[in-house]
């Protein structure tokens, strides 16, 4: 059983939902990433999504793009992201780490090499934003060969047919993008998300995470009422941005921890 599967099985037994925070590796610099990951776990994160910065993050909004630009300016790369995961694993062998990024850095390293190195580093799952199932056959196989979970997005516009196709190659969980738009957009329609979930569950038994547009404990609570996991990204990046704006990183971990703990309380308002 993979770390991701174990995590969902444990939460299921406890009647709780998963909280999956997202941060960009190397934002604002590499030294802060591992301490932030531990802070996320201490605040109640069940799985960490670690963004691999890319020069052209087409599916992300301005907040995550700025995080990528900050990280790249300090020399972050896919190779260095894997080193950060290795370092995280020296102190945390339980919390699943999912890399989230774009295809090109992975293809530049080589799919097989990446899969081997990522597994060795302790990565549990990989979500490549611009690999839809149609283009991801080799990727899915390479991940599974190394015991990692290929994670895929499902959108409000995905047909039942496409969800079924995705379910065939996905493992770990699927990530439902709760609104049409880029990361960090506003105006989340919780009712519309609730209506879509049964359609997804008809096609797959995998846990369903919901993200995009979740910014506070109250929204997290409403989403957790029907989803298996709540993903929060841009709001956390904003906190990191604010806490490190003056060049002093010392308060970032405490501020992020307080924010994520608050969202955790929202998620835990829901008991099965």
């Amino acid at each position: 059983m993979s770390r991701i599967q174990k995590t969902f099985a444990r939460l299921n037994g406890e009647g709780r939902k998963a909280l999956i925070p997202f941060i960009t590796a190397g934002d604002p610099d590499a030294d802060l990433t591992v301490p932030l990951m531990h802070a996320l776990v201490e605040a109640g994160a069940d799985i960490i999504e670690l963004g691999v910065p890319f020069s052209d993050p087409m599916a992300d909004g301005p907040t995550i793009q700025r995080a990528s630009e900050r990280a790249l300016a300090k020399g972050m790369s896919l190779r260095k992201v894997l080193q950060l995961v290795t370092r995280f694993r020296t102190e945390d062998d339980k919390t699943p780490v999912v890399l989230m990024g774009y295809a090109n850095p992975i293809e530049a390293m080589g799919l097989t090499t990446f899969a081997e190195k990522a597994a060795q580093s302790g990565v549990d799952g990989v979500l490549v934003v611009d690999y839809p199932p149609e283009e991801a056959e080799k990727f899915g196989a390479a991940m599974k060969a190394q015991g990692m979970d290929p994670i895929f997005l499902i959108a409000p516009t995905s047909s039942a047919e496409r969800i079924a196709h995705t379910a065939k190659i996905a493992s770990g969980y699927v990530y439902y993008v709760s609104l049409a738009g880029v990361t960090g957009s506003g105006a989340l329609n919780v009712e519309a998300v609730a209506q879509k979930l049964p359609l997804i569950r008809e096609q797959t038994g995998l846990p369903v995470g919901v993200g995009f547009g979740i910014r506070d404990a109250a929204t997290a609570a409403r989403i957790a009422a029907f989803a298996d996991a709540v993903v929060v990204g841009s709001r956390i990046i904003e906190e990191i941005e604010k806490s490190t704006a003056n060049g002093d990183n010392s308060s970032a971990c405490a501020n992020v921890k307080a924010l994520v703990a608050e969202i955790r309380r929202g998620v835990d308002e829901v008991k099965k």
Binding site: M58, A59, A103, Y131, A155, G181
Partner: peptide
């Protein structure tokens, strides 16, 4: 070529 986009664009 191909279609290397996020799922959100597929419908369009």
């Amino acid at each position: 070529g191909g279609v290397f986009v996020a799922e959100t664009l597929f419908g369009a």
